[in-house]
Nucleic acid binder design. Sequence first.
DNA 1: TAGTGGTCTAGACCACTAG
DNA 2: TAGTGGTCTAGACCACTAT
Lengths: 259, 259
Amino acid sequence: MTAGTGPTDGRTMHMRIADDIRIGIEAGEYPPGTQLPTLDELAARHLCSLAVARQAVAVLRQQGLVITRQGTGSFVRERPTARRHGMSRYSRSRWQSGEAVLIAEASRQGHEAAQLMRALEEAPAPAAVASILGISPGALVWVRRRTTLIDGRPNQLADSYYPLAIAEKAPRIREENTGPGGGFARIEEAGITLARIREQLQARMPTSPETVALKLPEGTPVIELTRTTFDTADAPVEVFIAVIAADMVTFDYDFPIPD
Amino acid sequence: MTAGTGPTDGRTMHMRIADDIRIGIEAGEYPPGTQLPTLDELAARHLCSLAVARQAVAVLRQQGLVITRQGTGSFVRERPTARRHGMSRYSRSRWQSGEAVLIAEASRQGHEAAQLMRALEEAPAPAAVASILGISPGALVWVRRRTTLIDGRPNQLADSYYPLAIAEKAPRIREENTGPGGGFARIEEAGITLARIREQLQARMPTSPETVALKLPEGTPVIELTRTTFDTADAPVEVFIAVIAADMVTFDYDFPIPD
DNA sequence: TAGTGGTCTAGACCACTAG
DNA sequence: TAGTGGTCTAGACCACTAT
């Protein structure tokens, strides 16, 4: 396992080093949290320059397997306990009983949640939102933008968009604190009965500002969740778009085999 | 917009270059498919070394915004048409009428699907599968491993795990061609009625072998889907684990507000 | 053949962390 | 202060694409 130049087998040197380390990680030779050999050691061991050793470690960072801490070393990444997002978090019984969905769901799973309001305003609807709400792009909607934190780490950028008519009927959703049971409870109090939810999920890499806002380690994708809530007349009542750090969450859906 | 050294504002040079280009892309200055300035041009324009220009482009690649083609240039990435994965793809009426879920669902959306069998064997169950099936880790299960292709591009590595008892009762699932309506149809013919499905989704970066197998461009995460199918006695009948190229898919769930 | 991106070296200097 | 990773330069050479 020292130098062992070995056959090149088509791979570049930094890829061979990265693969070696990855296999070591998968084999449990480097358990989560362990420090990897320093860049100098890697370079000496594989008879390559420092730059190549660094490039090998960069590959592993981008795969989400390793984190590096300047001045300290490179370490096998520990996966944070994934929070589970199941359909039951929307249960009527919960918010009708006054639970705040976010905080209650987190504490059920042994985490502490908090929320930072980023904006609370009337603003033009982005194209995707306008199309779902069936209004013309750029028409005004009421917007709540917040960042949620789990155990102190920001984990999602969440924006809710409400048609102005809804914001009129349930004015409390325009305030920072929507009261017991949150927005869903206020909307139903206004005489609008909620009926169904549609969730659409995509995964992608974060942009630079998202990386900063969510303090994402390299090699961490985001899940973009678009949730639409419909009332009993099948009219959309809220569009909710969240950009969620993917290393902190599992989505969970349970449904009967459809006819 | 030429050199304009400007204030350093804390960002490194390659990050400033990357941000400049990203903003250009977002503003539509570089539409999808457009070639970006060459590395030499970027280096000259920003008065930096070639290595830094390359690093800037590497950042954009990792964000999934740009692809580079050796010998040709760097280009703004075009997002492939996302396939939609909705719950209706599991409709009983479809597979009872003999549709092959994969191919039928793809063609409904204007794509062509194909399948490569990678393995068809009795093998020890991975820990995650064993835990779902309620058997001891390493106990034997029947496994179907396949790679599916959409429009010629590999898009998922899909492994199905069946308890041996199920494979006994519905022996056709041990063959390459499971016949009209696929595995679900064979299992119901064996007198086991399917009742519900649970899907769990996570997103992460691909490992090197996955990158190769799925021919993933840099900056493309994968979605790991774990699907369990239960019968009317609520016993698990199949565990299906797929690693899916995230740039080709949207998941879509639609459900009533739970009580 | 000219032009593009990819890999690698050798070394300077910076930024951060820990003892 | 010693040791770690991070940024950057300058340049050699390779691999691939288009013409």
